[in-house]
Structure formats: C-alpha cells, structure tokens
Write a protein that binds this DNA or RNA. Structure first.
Lengths: 199, 199, 199, 199
DNA sequence: AATGAATGAGGATTCATTCAT
DNA sequence: CATGAATGAATCCTCATTCAT
C-alpha cells in the first residue's frame, strides 16, 4: 500500500522534474508530452492519470518549484541578512548562468514569456514566486531601515523591485549574449548604488 | 513589372508584420504558419515562396525589426543626448507596458526565451539588436565622460548594461505582475543612481 | 458477511444505474467507463470485478432494465385492459418526452441504434424487451378479440406492432424536433384507428 | 485549375460519402476519422483541410444528404400524388431494410440518436430533413383535402406526422428484430386507416 | 508569382483494460 | 473484495512543408 503510493508519487514527481528541466531548457511549447514521458520513463497515459492536461502539468511544475523555494530546498539565498548575503543572492544567478554556459534563463521567466491569456492561473503561480523572491529582498532592506542603517528616503520595497529587475534583466541578457559580463556589470553597479543608500 | 514587385514585396512584409505581432502576443511556438497566413491575408504557398522555413521567417522578422530600429522607424529614443532623453528611453518601455495592459514583454526577449540550441542564427540576430540598443545607451555615457561630467571610475559600457538589465527585468516583471509599479520603482532608482555618478 | 454482499451488490447496481442514465443521456459510445465510475462513485477496478468488459456492462444494463420491466418496477402501463389503459400507455411516452424537454429517446433504441454486428447478444436483449412490450399490447387486442369486440379481420399481433411503431417513431421524432406535437398527432390518429376496429 | 478543383472536390465528397456509409453502418461515435480516411482513400490531414472538425463533417454529411434529397437524387418517392405513391413511399423503407438484411436504420435517426446537447446545429440539420420528408406527405393530404376527398375532420399535417412516425418506428423495430414483418404490419394498418379517411 | 490541395509526422488527449498490492 | 497505478492502442486534431497546376 505504502510502497505503491511511494512508487506512484515517484512517477508523478519524475514527470514534474523532467518537465521542469525540459521547459527550462527549450521552453514549454517546444516540449511535447511525449518527450517528457520519455525522459521521465513513465508510460504514455500515466501522464493523464496524474495531470488533467499539459497546462495542469505546467501549473504543477510551477507549484512544485514554489514549494521547493519555500522549503528552502534550492541553493538560492533566502534569508538575506547582510550585504554579503545580498551579493551572494545576485551571484547565485550569475554563477548559474556560468554553469549552464548561458544556455538557459530564469525557469519561471521562460515559462512566463510563453504564457497566453488563457493561462491566467499559471501567471498567478509565477507571480507568487516572484513575490516570494522579492519579499526575501524586501525583508533585508526593511531590516536595515528598522536599524536606521538606510536613508530615510529609501523605500525598502522599491529597492527589492530594483534588485529583482537587475536579476531578471541580467538573466535574459546573459542567455542572449552567451556571456555574463553585462549581467555582472549590472549587478556591480546595483550593489554600489544600494550600499550608497546606507548611513 | 514594378507594380508586381511592389505588390509582392507588400505580401512579404505583410507576412513579416503579422508574424511579428503574433510572436509578440503569444510566442513563436504557439503561432502557426497558418495563423500568420490567415492574419496577413497571404495564400498558403506564398509563404514558402518568400521564406525557406518558419525558422527563416523568424530570422526575417528579427532582421526586419533590426532594420526598423536602425532606420529609426520605431518610437524609441535612439539618440540619447540628455538625462531627459534617458528617462524618456526608460519610460518608453514602461508606457508600452501600460498601453498593452502588461500583456506582452520585449518582443525580442519573447522570441529569445523560446530559442533552442539549433537556432543559433536567430540568437545572434537578437544579440545584435541588444547590442545596438546598448550602444545607444553607451554613447550617452561615453559622451558624458568625454565632457568630464562622469566620475572617472564609471565605465560607460557597464552603465549601459545596467540600464539594459533594468529595462529587460522590468519588462518581464510587468508582464508577470500585470502592473508597472515594480518596473517604475526599478527605473526610479536606476536614474537616481546614474545621476549620482555625475560631477 | 451479508452486509458486505449487500454493500457490494449496491456498488454493482450503482454502476448499472449510472451507466443506464448516461447511455440514455448521451449514448453508449459517448460514455466512457471512467465517466460511469465517477458518476457511480465506484473505484476503477470495481468495474472489472463486476463486469467482464464494457460490452458486458451494456448487456447487464439492458438485462437490468428488462428485469425492472418484467417485475413492473417501471411507471409504464403493463397490464393494458381497457382503451384508457392503452391511451395511458401511449401518453406515458409522450409525457416522458415532455418531462425531459425532448432531450432523450427510448433508452433501448438509443442503445440499439449504436449497435454493431459484433454485439449480437445485446441486440437480442433489446429484442426481448421490444417483444415483451409488444406482448402487453398484443394481450389487450387478443382479449378484445376473444370477447368479440374486435373486427374479425383485425390481427391482434399486427395491431400491437402498429402501436409499437407509432411509439418508437414518436420518440425519435420528438427528440429531433424538440417538441411532442407530431408524436401526439400520431398517437391521436392511432387511437382513432384502433377504436374504429371495434364492433 | 479546373482539374485540381474537380479532383479536390472529389476528395471532399469521397470523404463525405465514406463517412455517411460508415455512420449509417456502425454509428457516428463508433466511426473514427482514421477509418473514414482509410475508406475514402484520402490522406491523413486532407480531412482537416476540408472540415473543421469531426462535428463539422457530420454537419456536412447531413447537409449533403439533405441536398441529395431536395434535388431528388435519392430513390425515395418525393412527389406523392396518389395512394399508390404513398404505399410506394412506405415500401421504399421496408424494402430498404430487406435489402440490407435489417442491419441498418434510418441514417438520420442513427446520427440523431447519438446527438448530445452541444450538437444543436446537427440536430437542426436533421430536423430540416424530417420536416422536408413530412412536407412531401403533407402535400398529398392537403391535395386530397383540397379536392374534397378527405374527411373534414382530418388534419393533413397530423396525418403526415402519423405516417412519419410509422416509418421511423418501423425502421428501428426492423433493425432490432432483424425482420420487417412488424414494420409491414404497421404500414399495412396505417394505409388502411388513411384510406378510411377518404370520402 | 500564385493557388490551395496533398503529405505525413507528431501534437494533446482518452479509452478500455490489466496488474500489483 | 478493494485500490488505483500502469499499459498502450486509438482518438481527434495541428503542424511545417511540398507538390501539381
């Protein structure tokens, strides 16, 4: 009983994992259900046993990513508590691009850029992930401000938006240019600026 | 004779225009050749008269966009000569998102995010456009530097990368969040920072 | 033990009931085993415990209908003993169509019209039901004749066939026309005729 | 040009013809698009070149049947002008059943019985055919009445409904019973009745 | 240059049925 | 007796592309 459930859950999560990777690699629409199934080793119709549709799978892929993020199972910095942590946060993305030879982008942006109007649910899923990520940045700036270490005029949330944009912009730029220098340049100046807001 | 050529060129450019719009709206893979043909009013095999393949069309779409950009037929700021121009450059993108209710992204990033490894040529096309855009920013900062209005430590090219990242990151963020506030926040701080580099 | 059997018999009859309703509503081929199972609340392989195949289920559905008919559990007139009873028999079908807004037909004809050559067994099941129904009509006319109330030339069985055809034809006509007037017209004249045969 | 059109029209009508036959034989849902294509000799995607969907094909099959009926290309009696004609009309259906060993039914009822609520268009198509058929009967009775050969109390339209029901009911009965006797019995009495209305 | 019919591989999805537990 | 995961063929449909005229 338990063994069955474990095995079956494995099939399901294998499909999600394979889908995530393929989506990240080549985009959602370029990835066929068959390809996902082949990659995950699952049989043809297992797919529709576990997922209502390909769109439902996308939804579950994003949800699973969200859960991993929230349960801190991803190698990103979540609890940004120092300037070093913030730099590490930025460089996690830079280094990711280096590690994949700039052949990918942000997995959520990859999915997000292919969204059409009838995929509102998935857009909201991704939105929550963006929000979660932004919040971990916000918290840092709010913390600084609470400690009086930030200029009064600086809005912590706006600074988080600023960081997030730099990161997202850096990711797509690296993917297109096949090099991380522009990304690093942007991050470099972002950090200089942010530090200039301290007092 | 000439009239025929003109008409045919019109067919060709109609296809390119329709393809550009549809790619921008719903992505490349979600757009079928048939859909483009229906939208452009062209007949089925007109397509393969003018284009070798769908990939060739994508290539031509990007090239045509590039040419429009270079011949200044797009409503973006090309010759950034003042801080006002730079702000206008940023706000062009913010306002674009507002005008489309945040339902799109950067057309080139939209295409770029769907690229697979066998579409190297198209990647380079987009790269050139990114480069061209970055250069119009670089020129401004180089100009400032030449006039001694920029801190010595500031690298004009890196500043251009910084601006470009903010823009690209803002575009995808707006698309996902369906609002431009985060984008505007990022731009706001970017400008504050850049101005702080003057002397 | 007994409770278990009762429960399981309930599962079985739930499946049959759900199948009957869905077949009646949307036809046999348009109804999937999964849909029946969902509707009846039974688990996936309960089905193959109780039925050899979908065809076997159809067979059992028809058999169960037959049993209900024979054990007089359906609201039709079985024992037609008077002209009033005969009219009631006809109007039962007219009123059924009214009650379902003419969205169905005779459940057996619905199944029967979808039969292919390899479903001979089911055809015979339905045949028996048609026969049974016809017989309850025949008996009435035979009775009349025995009592000398019917013209000598009138063949009771042929009159039953006549009634049955009117009913079946009225059912499909109502379903297609979404109104019962033609059915009622046919019934009206049928009754006039039949009564004209008395003496 | 013309040859192409002719060939292509042939492909299209081949598909419609094959579909009609298969639908008639085994029902709509039991007939796959692939089967139709195989039977008609058309290639896989020709189907979707000519028809929007399987439902669209059904629609066209019924429409084509309607056109054949209206242009009198079917061996049914259209212009019923005498009692002999009416008998011929009835016996056309009886004989059809004999010719196919009672293995089919009315092609339109076959399609009609499988209809679901989202196929309203097709239901209306069939309705028009039923109406057309009924009208050719109505005209006969109206004609009789005009000539004063029909009892005043007899409503020509209702008599047409009566005939139509007998025919439809006879068709399904023959299909289920695999013999035409009950159908013939019903027709026999119908004709006796109708003739009794003359004066 | 233009038309649109034809091709056939591949897309997502559903089906009846079986199997392991 | 019950559960639901697994199977794989088949379903409807779309795609990019080519061909005949």
């Amino acid at each position: 009983m338990k063994a069955v459930q474990e095995r079956s859950q494995k099939t399901r999560s294998n499909i999600i994992q394979a889908a995530f990777d393929l989506f990240h690699e080549q985009g959602v629409n370029a990835t066929s259900v068959d390809e996902i199934l082949k990659e995950s080793g699952a049989g043809k119709s297992q797919f529709y046993h576990y997922f209502k549709s390909k769109d439902d799978l996308i939804h579950e892929v994003v949800k699973s990513f969200s859960e991993k993020l929230r349960s801190k199972k991803l190698p990103v910095k979540y609890d940004i508590e120092s300037w070093d942590d913030l730099e590490q946060w930025f460089y996690f993305f830079v280094n990711f691009q280096k590690s994949v030879h700039c052949e990918r982008g942000c997995p959520m942006a990859t999915i997000g850029y292919e969204l059409t109007n009838d995929q509102e649910l998935i857009r909201q899923d991704i939105n929550l992930i963006f929000e979660f990520t932004k919040n971990s940045l916000s918290r840092f700036f709010h913390g600084l401000k609470a400690k009086g270490k930030l200029k009064k005029s600086a809005d912590p949330d706006a600074l988080a938006d600023f960081c997030f944009s730099i990161m997202q912009g850096g990711m797509i730029t690296a993917k297109i240019k096949k090099e991380t220098t522009p990304f690093e340049n942007a991050v470099h100046h972002a950090i200089i600026y942010l530090k200039s807001l301290t007092r």
